[in-house]
């Protein structure tokens, strides 16, 4: 594996395994996530890629019967330590889901403020704060006249960027995205990919995707998962041009998956 990636890792999975009941979904994954870079996790359906990122912010354990073994380090400290509150981990490691899920009862503005309000915080100047965060999510120009409309009234792509804004409002250090474009049309997908590209300046990003083109376009590093195992991890350029494992080559050339 790449030594430079290990050295500049913001987060690191260390022999991470995960189960749903008796079924093992991840098998001893060790993987660095490089600071202020985009890491893509690719692989066929059911390979454990979503489970993997849900372990990174301790969302895996929310599901009944789910458990993990091994460790995840954030800035060198375990997020699974006995004294670690998962609520604090999730504020530092934000998450965007596959299906846009803005809060339907809240306006666009309130969706942006939701993360802070749910923690009992109101920013000193909410209007300026909302404008800044929506600007970061490349959504401000499209919704500045619709801030009081319900979040669910936006288009699918706008809803997803609203969810990204809602996540960025907490100023996380790492942003996890679980197939963020899989329910979006090509134009909306392009906007989100552009946004991911820009966000790399400030955040460490992990994107799960089943689209190899997307992984090739947005990521600096790429990890290929297959049947719950990490098959190969390298610079995206290397993975997509000279993969070393024949299974990776089969997958990226479309022979299975």
């Amino acid at each position: 594996m790449l030594e430079s990636a290990e050295a500049s890792a913001k987060m690191r999975a260390d022999k991470l395994s995960a189960w749903f009941g008796d079924k093992q979904a991840l098998r001893s994954i060790s993987l660095p996530l490089v600071e202020r870079k985009v890491t893509a996790v690719i692989g066929p359906s059911g390979c454990g890629k979503s489970t993997f990122i849900r372990c990174l912010n301790r969302m895996h354990e929310v599901v009944a019967g789910a458990r993990t073994a091994g460790d995840v380090l954030l800035d060198g400290k375990s997020v699974y330590g006995a004294d670690v509150d998962p609520v604090r981990v999730r504020r530092r490691v934000g998450m965007v889901f596959q299906k846009p899920n803005p809060f339907p009862t809240m306006s666009v503005r309130d969706n942006v403020l939701a993360g802070l309000r749910l923690s009992g915080i109101t920013p000193p100047d909410p209007d300026a704060f909302v404008e800044e965060v929506l600007g970061q999510a490349a959504l401000w120009d499209e919704v500045k006249d619709a801030l009081d409309r319900p979040g669910g009234a936006l288009s699918g792509g706008q809803q997803q960027r609203l969810c990204i804004a809602r996540c960025l409002a907490l100023e996380p250090e790492v942003v996890l995205m679980d197939e963020p474009c899989s329910s979006l049309d090509p134009v909306a997908t392009a906007k989100i990919e552009e946004l991911i590209h820009d966000l790399r300046e400030r955040y460490t990003i992990v994107v799960v995707t089943h689209s190899m083109q997307q992984a090739a376009r947005v990521s600096d590093y790429t990890a290929f998962f297959y049947l719950g195992e990490l098959v190969e991890y390298d610079l995206a350029d290397v993975i997509f041009t000279k993969p070393s494992d024949p299974r990776t080559e089969d997958y990226i050339t479309g022979r299975f998956g």
Binding site: M59, F97, L118, S119, C167
Partner: peptide, 14 residues
């Protein structure tokens, strides 16, 4: 829907 619960939990809500 559970997706809304997950959204809130992922935002660090108790």
């Amino acid at each position: 829907p559970d997706s809304l619960r997950e959204a809130a939990l992922a935002l660090g809500a108790s």
